Simulated scan of single mutants.
Amino acid sequence: MSHSDPGIVGELVEIPIEEVTLDGTLSVPDDPQGLVVFAHGSGSSRKSPRNNAVAAQLNDAGHATLLFDLLTEEEDVVHENRFDVSLLVQRLVSATDWVRGEPAVADLPVGYFGASTGAAAALRAAVEADAPVDAVVSRGGRVDLASPVADDVTAACLFIVGGDDPDVLELNRDVYDELGCEKRLEVIEGAGHLFEGPGELDQVAEYAAEWFTEHLG
């Protein structure tokens, strides 16, 4: 999947957070409507091909995107860090604070797109962020890791799950029932956890773009 607009070039950014610096890519289309900050899953990074494919479609739909590494290379080697949701939440909140200070996107409403464990971080960060987060989209999310804050989520939440990912689907249904915010659950029939089948990731990106366009701005 490629940018249909070759004019959107991602800018490499360095995000200083406490004692570490995290690498990221900030992509800003002309006259952006919202900013979507991505939270990748365990063992992944800002270079995740799936998240980059979704980000390209969000850029085409008029949204700026920030993809960044939640962990440094040294931290990612330690397997426990990948599932330390509290650490991931802190990183996501800090990166959101940082990007809100970037002139190109400073005044935009913010949403989160989280995959796998990143979706848990996104839900919790939406509750803990210093300024409002208006929408969260979860792709194959381990949202159960954020179930203690489900009651507190005010951002509009879209959960996208593969029909052939039964364990994660069950976890998503449970947390979905606990949410008191505006919400939707989309099941992509036949899709597994990684949405690797033909057209499945396009479907994810379409649902996400519609959700963010409706709820950001």
Results as ranks from 00 to 15, higher is better:
159 F>W: 10
142 R>Y: 01
163 G>T: 05
75 E>D: 11
67 L>C: 12
118 G>I: 03
191 A>S: 02
134 D>W: 02
156 A>C: 02
92 L>N: 11
140 G>C: 00
182 E>M: 03
147 S>C: 00
156 A>I: 04
173 R>Q: 15
150 A>P: 00
154 T>I: 01
170 E>L: 12
79 H>A: 09
170 E>H: 11
164 D>Y: 09
116 S>C: 07
182 E>N: 05
169 L>K: 13
69 D>T: 09
168 V>W: 05
136 V>Q: 01
81 N>I: 04
146 A>T: 06
90 Q>I: 00
90 Q>M: 00
167 D>I: 07
83 F>N: 13
160 I>H: 03
146 A>H: 08
94 S>L: 12
106 A>M: 14
156 A>Y: 03
75 E>R: 11
166 P>S: 10
139 R>Q: 09
76 D>I: 11
179 L>F: 01
61 A>C: 09
116 S>Y: 06
181 C>F: 08
114 G>K: 07
118 G>R: 04
56 A>D: 12
191 A>H: 00
188 I>D: 03
128 E>P: 07
169 L>A: 12
172 N>E: 10
166 P>G: 14
71 L>N: 14
144 D>A: 11
140 G>K: 03
115 A>E: 07
62 G>Y: 09
189 E>N: 09
93 V>N: 03
138 S>L: 05
116 S>E: 08
143 V>N: 10
175 V>F: 10
180 G>N: 11
59 N>F: 03
159 F>R: 04
193 H>C: 06
88 L>Q: 09
99 V>F: 10
127 V>C: 03
60 D>W: 07
146 A>I: 10
137 V>C: 11
185 L>I: 07
70 L>V: 06
79 H>I: 13
127 V>W: 08
93 V>P: 08
53 A>N: 01
189 E>K: 13
62 G>H: 06
100 R>Y: 13
159 F>G: 00
109 P>F: 08
80 E>F: 06
64 A>C: 02
156 A>E: 07
126 A>Y: 11
69 D>H: 13
190 G>V: 06
77 V>T: 14
94 S>H: 13
58 L>G: 08
169 L>E: 13
89 V>I: 15
127 V>K: 07
59 N>Q: 14
181 C>W: 07
132 P>R: 15
139 R>E: 01
